[in-house]
């Protein structure tokens, strides 16, 4: 039978995680569904629920440090400059009951390709901080996500914080699902934009549910950087942008949607998100 350790400090938690056959339990909203399906039943669990130090959000020199145990009910109220997409993504997670329990760190480590918070954090260029008995390391989120259910988390490591750099631009998150609540995304997208004198100076686009992990759309970003708003109405530019975006993503047919539907939605979302952000940028 599984053991269930309840450490009170991160220090104590990593000592438990150093033991054989242990895994962390954050809010349990994913772990307990997996257990119902017979997964991880032989593991011992290290509960992170009592680690107050991982439930804090603090501003430091390199950005905002969001504790991995910050739940989505709290994350949807965050007001980090330039990071509206994170709060918007948090508000789209499950339903109130899930948002009261599900955590940002848990969402990342579960590594669902459809995780709502991951594209938002990728568009914000977030990094994750990992601690184990042998030390601490910081990994860009884009490198941390390895595949469906797979991350770069090493045995014995605990994700303690997510570092979100403060941006001077604006960001937005969109999600398409079969219904508004409790829906797994068919396609989700976060865009971060900075403009100067009517030109895009910085853009980061990240998508969920259209590849084995959430992905950055580097080709589309390269095309968009330096362009003006009117370029977005030019048919030729739009065709090139769509082609670039479709190269960035690799959606598949599954029970929720077809590959073609996801491609169409991904591009329309990009055009929509750019127009929303462009308005915000010009008002500022």
């Amino acid at each position: 039978m599984s053991m269930f350790y309840q450490p009170l400090t991160a220090e104590e938690a990593i000592a438990y995680l150093a033991r054989e056959n242990t895994m962390a339990c954050a809010g349990g909203t994913d772990l307990y569904v997996n257990r119902k399906h017979g997964k991880f039943l032989d593991k011992d669990y290290v509960s992170l629920d009592k680690l107050q130090e991982l439930k804090q959000v603090t501003k430091k020199a390199d950005g905002w440090h969001v504790g991995s145990m910050v739940n989505f009910a709290c994350a949807e109220k965050l007001e980090i400059p330039g990071a509206a997409c994170l709060a918007m993504a948090a508000a789209e997670v499950g339903a109130p009951q899930i948002r009261n329990r599900g955590t940002v760190g848990g969402n990342i480590v579960s590594a669902s390709p459809a995780a709502d918070s991951v594209p938002a954090l990728m568009a914000l260029d977030a990094k994750v901080m990992l601690r184990s008995v042998s030390g601490e390391r910081v990994v860009p989120l884009t490198d941390f996500m390895k595949g469906p259910g797979k991350t770069d988390l090493k045995p014995g490591e605990l994700m303690t914080e997510i570092i979100v750099p403060e941006g001077k631009g604006s960001s937005v998150f969109s999600k398409a699902g079969k219904r508004n609540a409790l829906a797994i995304a068919v396609c989700s997208q976060a865009v971060y934009l900075e403009t100067e004198n009517g030109k895009i100076t910085e853009i980061r686009v990240a998508l969920g549910s259209v590849a084995p992990t959430a992905v950055r759309a580097y080709r589309a970003e390269a095309l968009l950087k330096g362009t003006e708003e009117k370029a977005l109405t030019c048919a030729e530019f739009k065709a090139a942008l769509k082609a670039a975006l479709l190269e960035d993503i690799s959606p598949i047919d599954d029970v929720r949607a077809t590959k073609e539907y996801r491609q169409t939605v991904a591009f329309r979302m990009l055009m929509h998100n750019l127009s929303v952000l462009w308005k915000e940028e010009t008002v500022c």
Partner: peptide, 20 residues
């Protein structure tokens, strides 16, 4: 759905030990 310390949660996926 029940309330734990005033917050609504799904008790079917809530580790009882965390409600101690």
């Amino acid at each position: 759905t029940i309330l734990v310390n005033g917050k609504s949660v799904n008790s079917c996926i809530y580790p009882a030990i965390q409600a101690d």
